[in-house]
Simulated scan of single mutants.
Amino acid sequence: MNSPADLLGRMLGAAARAADRGLDHLGLTPPPLDLPPEVREDLRDLFGHTIDPTAVMIRRGHVPGVPHPRAFALPGLIYLGADPGVVGTAAGTAVAGTAVAGTAAAGSDRPRATPTLVHELVHVWQGRVVGPRYVVIALVEQVRHGRRAYDWRAVLDRASTDRAS
């Protein structure tokens, strides 16, 4: 786990967290997301003890001075962009195609993580499982493939083609 890519990934994560702290000290960062207990429980159910979302700085909004609203994650840091991160859902409704019936009393609102928050936490999880080099691998893939880097079907198609060769 001490490859050049791991070292670079650690350095990128540390630099991003240091920049975030500096911007926060200047009052320029968007506010952190305070995860409601129900959302923390859901995330614990999803990720187990592999990541602790309360140990990750999750910011509502985007990096100051960066006009794009896209969310992104680096080790220990998430910016949610335009996504709120947590929404209230009425019991028995669906969130992004996932039924939430039976998770709350009838007629009540229950806070839930948005798909974007879960997606970005998966990137944090990937960094912990694969190692810091995950950040470098992901950035290289985004440079090489642009938005297609997020097309998991294309990755499976390429793998299938490679296996057939």
Rank of each mutant, 00 (worst) to 15 (best):
residue 162 D to R: 09
residue 74 L to V: 06
residue 110 R to C: 05
residue 62 H to N: 06
residue 151 D to L: 11
residue 138 A to W: 02
residue 150 Y to D: 13
residue 21 R to C: 12
residue 77 L to Y: 06
residue 40 R to H: 14
residue 17 R to Q: 13
residue 32 P to I: 09
residue 140 V to E: 13
residue 38 E to A: 13
residue 22 G to H: 15
residue 75 P to D: 06
residue 164 A to L: 10
residue 66 V to Y: 05
residue 2 N to K: 15
residue 151 D to I: 00
residue 63 V to I: 09
residue 23 L to M: 08
residue 54 T to K: 14
residue 132 P to A: 14
residue 53 P to Q: 11
residue 118 V to H: 01
residue 99 A to K: 11
residue 27 G to L: 12
residue 18 A to I: 02
residue 66 V to D: 03
residue 122 V to L: 14
residue 128 R to G: 01
residue 90 A to H: 05
residue 132 P to L: 00
residue 31 P to C: 14
residue 117 L to Y: 03
residue 68 H to E: 06
residue 60 R to C: 07
residue 122 V to S: 10
residue 35 L to S: 10
residue 5 A to F: 08
residue 100 V to Y: 03
residue 142 Q to Y: 03
residue 127 G to Y: 08
residue 72 F to Y: 08
residue 83 D to W: 02
residue 54 T to I: 11
residue 156 L to A: 14
residue 73 A to N: 07
residue 94 A to R: 06
residue 147 R to N: 06
residue 81 G to M: 05
residue 61 G to D: 03
residue 112 R to K: 10
residue 22 G to K: 13
residue 21 R to L: 15
residue 94 A to S: 15
residue 104 A to M: 01
residue 74 L to H: 01
residue 108 S to P: 00
residue 102 G to I: 05
residue 100 V to D: 10
residue 8 L to E: 13
residue 83 D to S: 02
residue 37 P to M: 13
residue 5 A to I: 00
residue 60 R to D: 06
residue 153 R to D: 14
residue 80 L to H: 01
residue 59 R to W: 04
residue 93 T to Y: 09
residue 164 A to R: 13
residue 53 P to M: 07
residue 56 V to G: 09
residue 127 G to D: 08
residue 45 D to M: 10
residue 38 E to Q: 07
residue 55 A to G: 10
residue 41 E to D: 12
residue 144 R to T: 15
residue 51 I to G: 12
